[in-house]
């Protein structure tokens, strides 16, 4: 693992992040948006563990943060799904473009 160095991890992380953002920006389905968010979070996780591995000072902290993000992601998914369900109940759709009720 030490041979390949930090860079490939960061590149993979950046790629995942770009995929996630694209997914959030492009998809109209709320569930797909949620999946994009998961991708973004996990790209961040990858970043954290990679830095933890290659920076001795942060060996423990990076992993702890990653665990915390995983917990947060679970909570976020629960809340987001609840919101989506409610939105579906009210609007009979999960299209995020329809969610313009609070527009100024």
């Amino acid at each position: 693992m030490n041979d390949i160095g930090l860079t490939p991890f960061l590149m993979l992380s950046g790629f995942l992040f770009a995929c996630g953002v694209t997914c959030v920006a492009v998809k109209r389905n709320a569930v797909a948006v949620l999946m994009g968010v998961e991708l973004i979070l996990n790209s961040a996780n990858l970043n954290l563990v990679a830095f933890a591995r290659f920076t001795p000072a942060f060996r423990l902290e990076g992993q702890v943060f990653t665990l915390m993000v995983i917990v947060l992601a679970a909570a976020e998914a629960a809340i987001a799904l609840a919101i989506i369900l409610n939105f579906y109940n009210n609007h009979a759709t999960v299209d995020v473009d329809e969610a313009t009720d609070l527009k100024g």
Partner: peptide, 17 residues
């Protein structure tokens, strides 16, 4: 400036990114 605030989530994210 009102016109900028479309209420579209995807637009905001794109702008942000």
């Amino acid at each position: 400036l009102r016109a900028v605030q479309t209420g579209l989530l995807r637009f905001y994210v794109t702008a942000l990114a």
